[in-house]
Amino acid sequence: MDENGTHAPLLVADSLLCALSAPGRATDIDEADDVYGWLVGSWRMQVLHYRDDLRAAPLQGEIQFGWVLEGRAVQDVWIMPPREHRTGTRSAALDMYGTTLRVWDPALRAWRVTYLNPATGQRDELIGRRIGDAIVQIGTHANGTPIRWNFTDIGRDSFRWTGVALAPDGVTWTLEAEFVAERVRG
């Protein structure tokens, strides 16, 4: 508190970040179950598809991943365009500033995944697991539409992320987003 009895915003933010962040995976999560820990760090992404095909003029973005909640969760922030290019005049259709919380569920032996983007109101719930060389997350948009989000082409410092949704015909999966990421630091 300052001399007027109010909390200094910076100190509150620092306290929150200290309480939220964790130095690594909790010891009660087996290394074999650590599906997301390798992502911790900073990433640059090329946006190839975001509601529309953008391969002709890919957008850039950034992703920040970290261990949180005593190492029982991995949280990220997906930002498009990256912070250094964000201005007050952005296209709402091509704007993303959302967070994903991936929490280990020992009873399920999988990760419960929740994504929120307050700017657009998007909210998604999924279950994530490693399947072969990929990380597959299956769930629904808030409106009940089935979705699959996949990390593929995983390397130590790179990955491809795709998000598809089931079309109203109940058969066709439609690409909603595709990103290619490269590690900046981590």
Rank of each mutant, 00 (worst) to 15 (best):
M1P: 13
D2A: 09
E3Y: 12
A8N: 14
A8W: 11
P9G: 02
P9W: 02
L10M: 02
L11N: 11
V12K: 14
V12Q: 12
V12N: 02
D14V: 03
S15P: 00
S15W: 11
L20Y: 04
S21F: 04
A22I: 05
P23N: 10
G24V: 03
G24N: 07
G24L: 02
D28T: 06
D28I: 05
I29E: 05
E31T: 13
E31G: 14
D34C: 11
D34P: 11
Y36G: 02
L39E: 00
V40Q: 08
W43M: 04
W43A: 01
W43T: 03
Q46C: 10
V47R: 03
H49E: 02
Y50W: 14
Y50S: 05
R51A: 11
L54C: 04
R55G: 00
R55I: 11
A57C: 06
G61F: 03
G61W: 08
E62A: 14
Q64S: 07
G66H: 02
G66I: 06
W67S: 00
L69Q: 11
E70D: 15
R72D: 06
A73W: 01
D76P: 10
D76H: 13
I79H: 01
P81K: 09
P81G: 06
P81H: 09
P82M: 03
P82D: 01
P82A: 07
P82W: 04
R83M: 05
H85G: 05
R86F: 01
R86S: 00
R86Q: 11
R86T: 00
T87N: 12
R90C: 09
S91M: 06
A93S: 14
L94Q: 13
L94V: 00
L94W: 09
L94R: 13
D95T: 15
M96F: 06
M96Y: 12
G98M: 04
T100R: 11
W104G: 00
W104I: 00
D105F: 01
D105W: 00
A110G: 08
W111Y: 05
W111V: 02
R112P: 01
L116G: 08
N117G: 08
N117W: 09
N117L: 08
T120C: 11
G121N: 01
Q122S: 10
L126A: 07
L126F: 09
L126E: 06
I127Y: 00
R130P: 05
A134V: 01
A134Y: 05
I135K: 07
I135W: 05
T140E: 07
H141N: 12
T145Q: 14
R148V: 10
W149K: 12
N150G: 00
F151Y: 14
G155M: 04
G155R: 15
R156V: 08
R160E: 10
G163N: 12
A165I: 03
A165S: 14
L166V: 07
D169F: 12
W173Y: 08
T174A: 07
T174M: 05
T174H: 05
L175A: 04
V180W: 15
V180I: 14
A181H: 10
A181R: 09
R185S: 14
